[in-house]
């Protein structure tokens, strides 16, 4: 019997009777990280890394039944030994390692290989079966050095400030926003954040992540940001709360900005992703030494075919359902 199998409720471990990032309500859910496509309400009990507990409670409510596990510690669940290791995706993101009678399976969930000051770095784990994500599983996705991207963002900010524009950088509220906030240089000007982003910061601060002085867009003195500051806001927010800060210059930081070099009229794109790029995926597959690779999320068929042609036993996780 395989240690993990795909069911209509998500990735299930029959020997431990738990689900990993279930898509429906279950009795026991192991949550890899607090993004809404991985952490869903309604399950009876949750297990996540100790570092990710604050974010998970913020997302799912303080009343949830939550057990935490420090990275690297093992927990006996049913017949298997379960342990969590850093995935480097966002604060508290974990790879799930399951061991049963010497056989080891690892579920990477979302992960990245680049450095991020807001979360522990990804650790490649030796295993027999590795289930990887493939959000950016195409050779066109190769991330530039994040320090260069950060320099570009600061240059853009300065150029906007010189023209009297408020820089508005559209980023995901959880993960990307905090990663950037922790690295933005406040000497360039005041920094404001959308209330949705602000609400997540206490969980980060509780884990020792430091941020520069920030103003909430809901505060009255946000007007200080106008014409010189940087605003971090979730994608799609273009007016309303930003109206008092006009004129605005929009930018966007995401892995999907790759290949958008001459898209006219689009915001300034900065290639910054919290996922592994193509070389990162292949490097990880190699470093795990796994005999079998399950692929989920994103360009599944492409990565499976490529790995198969390279002589690796690869299979799509969802297609195995049933």
């Amino acid at each position: 019997m395989p240690l993990l199998t795909w069911t209509e409720r998500g990735l299930y471990c029959p020997r431990g009777d738990f689900y990993i990032d279930p898509i429906k309500k279950v009795a026991q859910a192991v949550i890899t990280h607090a993004h809404s496509d991985h952490a869903r309400r309604g399950s009876k009990s949750y297990l996540c890394s100790r570092a990710g507990a604050g974010l998970l409670r913020h997302r799912l409510g303080q009343e949830i039944s939550l057990q935490t596990l420090p990275y690297g510690e093992s927990l006996k669940v049913g017949e298997v030994a379960l342990s969590l290791y850093p995935a480097g995706h966002v604060l508290g993101s974990s790879q799930v390692r399951i061991e049963h009678r010497g056989e080891v399976w690892v579920v990477s969930s979302d992960y990245k290989r680049q450095t991020d000051p807001t979360c522990a770095a990804f650790e490649p784990l030796r295993c027999h079966t590795f289930i990887t994500e493939s959000t950016f599983g195409l050779p066109v996705y190769r991330w530039p050095d994040p320090s260069h991207v950060l320099e570009e963002i600061h240059r853009w900010w300065s150029a906007n400030r010189n023209q009297g524009l408020t820089s508005v950088l559209q980023v995901y509220s959880l993960g990307k926003a905090q990663r950037l906030l922790a690295q933005l240089n406040p000497s360039h000007g005041p920094i404001a954040v959308h209330p949705n982003i602000m609400a997540l910061l206490p969980a980060y601060r509780a884990e020792g992540v430091a941020f520069p002085p920030l103003i909430s867009l809901a505060d009255a003195d946000v007007i200080r940001v106008r014409g010189q500051g940087m605003v971090l806001a979730p994608p799609g927010i273009k007016s309303g709360i930003l109206d008092s800060l006009k004129p605005l210059a929009f930018g966007s930081a995401s892995g999907w900005m790759h290949g958008a070099a001459d898209q006219r009229g689009q915001p300034m794109g900065f290639v910054l992703s919290d996922h592994a790029d193509w070389p990162g995926l292949l490097q990880t597959v190699h470093e795990t030494g796994a005999e079998s690779i399950g692929v989920m999320h994103g360009f599944v068929a492409t990565l499976v075919r490529y790995l198969t042609e390279q002589g690796v036993h690869a299979w799509p996780v969802v297609a195995r359902a049933g």
């Binding site: 050779p139 066109v140 790759h258 958008a260 360009f299 490529y306 042609e309």
Partner: peptide, 25 residues
């Protein structure tokens, strides 16, 4: 392989951009 190059083109849509991004830095 050719099929992977075609898949990249489908994803990025702009073929000039796709071909540029596939090449190593």
């Amino acid at each position: 392989p050719d099929w992977l190059i075609a898949a990249c083109h489908r994803s990025i849509r702009d073929e000039c951009a796709a071909l540029s991004l596939m090449l190593p830095e």
